[in-house]
Design a protein around this nucleic acid. Structure first.
Lengths: 142, 142
DNA sequence: GTATACTGTAATTATATTTATAACAGATAC
DNA sequence: GTATCTGTTATAAATATAATTACAGTATAC
């Protein structure tokens, strides 16, 4: 799976944790453990989908624009990583004179799509606030 | 996802389609669209797990050693690609002085594991014979 | 209006992963 | 013994991913 999903979830959880304060891409990048430009790219998708509000210029940054109780990981997955279950490599070849070789790519494609849907029904149940709660539980274990 | 899963499923479906005839790695590789050495590597895993029987030497090759009605894609996924849902890249850093940064990697790890389990309950229902049937249906559409 | 501090985005470089290929030992059939 | 196969490792090539650089655009403070 694409790690932009991880970056998006981490960023949203961080913003939810900081309640309504804004955060710069540098601050988020440091917390996530990546480069600010990468955070800006991922959060730019979230902004276009309305999950965060961004403010350019001095004193700018990112703030949460959604209710963490309402937003599921499935929505975030759709924005950042849909289709990433399926490997880019495909078996078979349409030109071969064999029923298996000709059709395996299509069949596997369907299987990967259905598998992804199953995974997404799970992610639908998980909200950003649940992830934050899991972080709290994990922290209390240490 | 790792494409060894695709190669394994394709090979098993091909062997099931050819009933009890054996096939060489070169024949399978040509059908799958990869290198014989890669087929040998993947089928070597399947042999160790008892799904195929191999015969070395002249006239050798691979034959199915399982009932296609009984073997699910979940079993094959376990052998070839377990854990491949989770991206190798992890966010956060245990050393940071922030609850989110410290625990996000563990939390995401758990989420990816659960997501993978959901996907696997779907793959459990799909047998090798179902995949062969899907190939037949797909072929009849053309 | 100019300096400063941000985001947005594209281009480039570096790194990691994946796939293909080569090579050869070991096994079996003839 | 020779030809044909698998098993396995090592290496090279291709691809995908992540980091970095660069700079235009925008808002703020002075």
């Amino acid at each position: 799976m694409n790690s932009e999903f991880t970056i998006a979830v981490h960023s949203l959880v961080l913003l939810a944790y900081r309640s309504d304060r804004s955060a710069t891409s540098e601050y988020i990048a440091d917390n996530v453990g990546t480069h600010p430009a990468r955070v800006r790219k991922v959060l730019s998708f979230l902004r276009k989908a309305g999950y965060v509000v961004t403010k350019e210029g001095s004193g700018g940054g990112y703030t949460l624009a959604c209710d963490p109780d309402e937003v599921s990981l499935a929505e975030i997955y759709c924005i950042t990583s849909i289709g990433s279950i399926k490997p880019s490599w495909c078996s078979g070849d349409e030109e071969e004179d064999c029923m298996i070789a000709c059709n395996m790519a299509d069949v596997m494609d369907g299987i990967f799509s259905e598998a992804e849907e199953r995974m997404m029904t799970y992610l639908e149940q998980l909200k950003i606030s649940d992830v934050l709660e899991r972080v709290r539980v994990q922290a209390s274990k240490k």
